[in-house]
Nucleic acid binder design. Structure first.
Lengths: 156, 156
DNA sequence: CCCATATCGTTCGTGTACGTACGATGACCC
DNA sequence: GGGTCATCGTACGTACACGAACGATATGGG
């Protein structure tokens, strides 16, 4: 394999100060993006249903806990803004996993709930949920796993 | 404010075992998604140019280190697959920040480089890069910041 | 030299993610 | 009870993210 372009040139040296050089690979935002990519990939192959995404899963889990929620409140509970939530809910409704009815007490709201099929599916997926987390955290030992979850909780 | 729908019902109790209950808010994938969202939001308001996204920034930083890179190799260096890279590069080229030429030694490849304008911009953004990371890690003390970066590096 | 295989970049489709703007509705206060 | 302000859901535009399929090109083995 020609690899002329593979390592043509080393990165330019950092500035001459004693300060730590700025490497994109060591920045928190970059690492979070990569870690999130990996976690999503593991979810996809481990959760046991290729048609369910992480956000759809967390939405369904929340709807399984609270039996009925407005779209906006569900969004706050799972950390999605209303525009994003709109698309997630639309797709779940199109597949018959989620149902909706107008809130009888507030005409602005739509109450969402899982259909019987949605309940059946989320209960099946919940069996694999722990395996997804276990696989994602596999490179770390027990203490490190707890540390990471703790530190991430603090910055969220 | 009516809050009938706000806390209608507590989440159902977990199963009766001693095992830790499965809470979506404690799962690594969920936390990574939320943390990444927050980091992106901080990037957007701190980097100093509302038109530059995190992925565009890391691509430009890499192109500033290596003077010329194929699109595919750049993607591997910044952790984006080729389909995603295609869009990022297209937008940077449309704005005149990146230029391309055919690789004289390999007709499959396109060599990318920063334009003078692109270099000017990335050097300005690099001044704010440390502030983005500092702000994102602000809830943690120094030791915790290093731990988090270390743990994330291990699972990426 | 030729063929199987791999890589490179593009395109298409689906799905987050969010800013902004909008109309409808509700809450609050004078 | 009427006006102001907030909230709810929707719509549109832009941007990542990736699987799958594709044509062009390169490589390595027989």
């Amino acid at each position: 394999m020609r690899n002329v372009a593979r390592k043509q040139q080393e990165p330019k040296a950092s500035s001459g100060t004693l300060a730590r050089p700025y490497r994109i690979e060591e920045q928190i935002g970059y690492l979070l993006r990569r870690a999130h990519q990996r976690a999503s990939a593991i979810f996809q192959v481990t959760i046991g249903d290729p048609n369910i995404t992480p956000t759809q899963y967390s939405s369904m889990v929340k709807l399984n806990e609270y039996r009925e929620l407005s779209q906006n409140l569900l969004g706050r509970l799972v950390g999605m803004d209303k525009a994003t939530m709109q698309g997630v809910v639309r797709r779940l409704k199109e597949r018959g996993l989620v149902d909706s009815r107008p809130d009888p007490g507030d005409a602005r709201r739509t109450l969402l709930s899982l259909t019987t099929e949605g309940q059946r599916i989320v209960n099946r997926l919940l069996l694999n949920g722990p395996a997804v987390s276990r696989e994602t955290l596999k490179p770390l030992n027990g203490a490190e796993q707890r540390q990471l979850l703790d530190l991430l909780s603090k910055i969220v």
